[in-house]
């Protein structure tokens, strides 16, 4: 394998790891916060919610996966540009919305799906330049 090709495979692998970790992490956070209930937007409300969040198992599983996301993200940022890595999660939005429907039984209206598709296309377009990973 040429050096350039190896770099590309390495980048692709890390990006895939990023997407899986980010989606599983976010879903676990949602599960945890659903059990905790609405956080009141006041100092007292935040103070009350904090011990509940740090003692919630789903939140910690979410943090574990999001740490995996952060680690792969930080590592890939050391050899690829921010503007190259940034759009890689474009389809993550559609995948996450689908997972929310399947696993969390959220209802997503056709209008919201159109919005999600626009976001995916928009995020892909944002990544138009700097397609090649470089140092």
């Amino acid at each position: 394998m040429t050096l350039e090709r190896r770099l590309r495979v390495k980048t692709l692998f890390m990006v895939l790891l990023m997407v899986v970790c980010a989606n599983v992490g976010d879903l676990m956070l949602k599960r945890g916060m659903s059990r905790i209930g609405e956080v009141q937007p006041s100092l007292a409300g935040l103070a009350r919610a904090f011990p509940l969040t740090v003692s919630n198992g789903s939140i910690w599983i979410g943090i574990f996966f999001l740490s995996g996301f952060m680690l792969s993200y930080m590592t890939v940022l050391s050899w690829a540009d921010y503007s190259y890595v940034m759009p890689a999660g474009a389809f993550g939005y559609a995948i996450l919305t689908l997972l929310a429907v399947v696993f969390l039984h959220e209802s997503v209206s056709p209008r919201r799906w159109i919005g999600v598709v626009l976001i995916c296309v928009g995020v892909l377009l944002v990544g138009q330049l700097n397609r090649e990973p470089h140092r």
């Binding site: 976010d26 879903l27 956070l29 949602k30 916060m33 659903s34 905790i36 209930g37 609405e38 956080v39 919610a49 939005y93 996450l96 919305t97 929310a100 429907v101 969390l104 959220e106 997503v108 919201r112 919005g115 999600v116 976001i119």
Partner: peptide, 11 residues
Amino acid sequence: LSWEPISLVIP
């Protein structure tokens, strides 16, 4: 996430 569905928050 404690307020809104994830299909709103993440997009």
